[in-house]
Design a protein around this nucleic acid. Structure first.
Lengths: 181, 181
DNA sequence: CAGAGCATGTAAGAGGTTACATGATTAC
DNA sequence: GTAATCATGTAACCTCTTACATGCTCTG
């Protein structure tokens, strides 16, 4: 039940179309929540039916019409109530770890190559987060900006920890893989 | 598509009933994959239909009959092939971060209490992982045990990072919440 | 005698992924 | 002219969660 509330959270900052929201989910919000455009459009219809958002059709030339969504008062109330509900801790769910767990059934080379791919992806994400950090979160921050900085920092520390873990496992594999026991 | 393969991975180590598997998922495998008993029973039926596992009915006195599942050759092949497919990186999906992101709409006290709950939960999980570490992964380890140790270490570092992050945000909130700007 | 543990399942619904579908504009 | 970007959606399917359902044994 978090997707509609993530959408409401974005809409508190500015009005947006489904397309805009999808951009948001692949960028700024993307370091802690993801959604595809299909999910977003479906969710927006439901939310509109519940009265949490309303939209205005914006005609365009050449391009198809936009639906610009805005938060309603009911939507704000809903978001506020939701904020007070206790949030669950999300456990890790990492396919790579299942593969490691059963790793003796395959060759060490397969494991090494899986880890290297992950290492690279974590490096890229870390770099992306660091550039967001440099761009938006330098100097004195308002309370609101501070909160958003902390959510980014969670992403930063997650990627850094993942990266270091990959490096350590790779080093261990290189030492032990040859003399497999 | 990872749940059936996680089950196959457990079954490579020993035969198990649906109940046993559910225990496994809430314990050892639980630090990187989760599944409820409902999911497991459903999945086992499907896997049996596909020929990846077979079961023997074990009658018991007093208790209901068990179905003891074992890996078939086809199941082993399936697992081996799956191990070679590239694993995707799982992005973070943390409800708490949405709440922080929209945190200006509620009082700092709500945020503090959410963070404190999370802090406590991460502390508990960390302690549980540490006792697993002390119990099973001391001294010289075989290759197989080493791989499993690395999967546990991923959980350890994740919990530690989460915990430190919670502490830092709490410290920041205590400094800034009163003079909210 | 109440509650935890053993042991299995069904059913409904929510949430998420993948594929399909359209059509104009702009940049290379 | 080919691909990317803008902009919206439908349909089918898979996966996961929540609630319901049964019934025996052992421990306190």
């Amino acid at each position: 039940m978090s997707l509609p509330h993530a959408i409401l959270a974005i809409l508190t900052q500015k009005e947006a179309t489904g397309y805009d929201l999808a951009q948001n989910f692949s960028q700024s919000i993307g370091h802690f929540w993801q959604a595809s455009h299909q999910q977003i459009y479906r969710e927006l219809s439901k939310m509109e039916a519940q009265g949490w958002v309303s939209f205005a059709v914006v005609p365009q030339k050449g391009k198809p019409d936009k639906k610009r969504y805005a938060l309603t008062l009911a939507g704000q109330d809903e978001l506020k109530n939701w904020l007070e509900e206790p949030a669950r801790v999300t456990p890790i769910r990492e396919t790579l770890l299942i593969k490691l767990f059963a790793g003796t059934l395959t060759s060490p080379e397969v494991l090494v190559s899986q880890l290297e791919t992950h290492l690279e992806l974590h490096r890229e994400k870390l770099a992306a987060y660091q550039s967001l950090e440099n761009e938006y979160f330098q100097g004195e921050l308002s309370f609101a900006a501070g909160l958003q900085y902390w959510s980014l920092k969670r992403g930063l520390s997650y990627e850094l920890a993942s990266l270091e873990w990959c490096e350590q496992v790779l080093a261990w594999l290189n030492k032990h893989a040859s003399k497999a026991d």
